[in-house]
């Protein structure tokens, strides 16, 4: 018994097992009914296939290592915890961040890479639930967040603060909607009353969402300062020329 306690302290030391509430969204085997798992798996496979199909024609040779690197980045960023109330902690989900950095479709692909590796290499999240996890944390979070961002950007003036505000709202909503999807799936699988599950999931994640929003906007403003060219797609800035001076694309010519 003592050995087991020791092991736990080991892990705490590695900061791998603070009680991370956010991980509650990583669903394991046996939690979700087979029908739901099958449905979400089909959606996940479709989204990934579309992204890959589009990527095959359009991904420039340079973007292949860069997308992979973004996946690695999201994984590493998820390892950095932030404290929430009562000794628990959350971490960045990153769906909106990924969508803004590489576009919504490739954003889903990047999140799916991370979730797939977590499921297989780290046994973190179930294999039969992989479709559901991708659906909640990549598709629902990524697309809904990006849609909110897109709408707000249309409505608000094209300034830096409204760009950051849209990103903040989008990332809060992405986390909350992802968790609601998770709660609904659990309830539909007979794992408790709908009200309780959705309520508690959304409740906790509306707190975590604040952290997500703060972190996402801080990251974006940092990137905006250092490499505005990377956010060109979602924040085309008229000052681009001037900003580009700061740091330029390294690669000039490669035939």
């Amino acid at each position: 018994m003592l050995r087991i306690v020791d092991l736990y302290y080991d892990l705490q030391f590695l900061q791998l097992t603070d009680v991370e509430v956010e991980r509650a969204m990583h669903i394991f085997e046996g939690a979700i009914s087979n029908e739901i798992n099958a449905t979400t798996a089909i959606m996940a496979v479709s989204a990934i296939s579309i992204a890959l199909y589009k990527g095959k024609g359009q991904l420039e040779e340079k973007e292949v290592p860069l997308l992979g690197m973004t996946g690695a980045f999201i994984f590493a960023a998820q390892m950095i915890n932030f404290p929430i109330a009562g000794g628990t902690s959350g971490h960045l989900l990153g769906a909106v961040l990924a969508a803004l950095l590489v576009g919504p479709l490739y954003g889903v692909l990047v999140m799916a890479l991370v979730l797939g590796i977590q499921a297989v290499m780290f046994a973190d999240g179930g294999l039969t639930a992989l479709g559901t996890n991708i659906f909640n944390m990549a598709i629902v979070s990524g697309f809904s967040g990006y849609a909110v961002f897109w709408i707000m950007k249309k409505v608000l003036p094209n300034t830096k603060s409204s760009f950051l505000a849209s990103a903040a709202v989008a990332s809060w909503i992405s986390v909350v909607l992802g968790s609601i999807a998770c709660g609904v799936e659990l309830a539909l699988s007979g794992k408790g009353p709908m009200g309780l599950l959705v309520g508690s999931m959304a409740g906790v994640h509306s707190l975590i969402g604040i952290g997500e929003a703060l972190i996402t906007t801080t990251v974006l403003s940092l990137v905006l300062n250092a490499r505005p060219d990377l956010l060109e797609k979602c924040y085309p800035n008229s000052n681009q020329e001037k900003d580009m001076d700061q740091r330029c694309q390294l690669v000039e010519v490669t035939p």
Partner: peptide
């Protein structure tokens, strides 16, 4: 704290992107 974490993650991204280019 959230701001500090955001800056860490932002730096991590910039570094990883540049690594990707290399």
């Amino acid at each position: 704290q959230a701001k500090v974490i955001g800056q860490m993650i932002g730096t991590l991204f910039l570094r990883s992107y540049e690594r990707g280019e290399r």
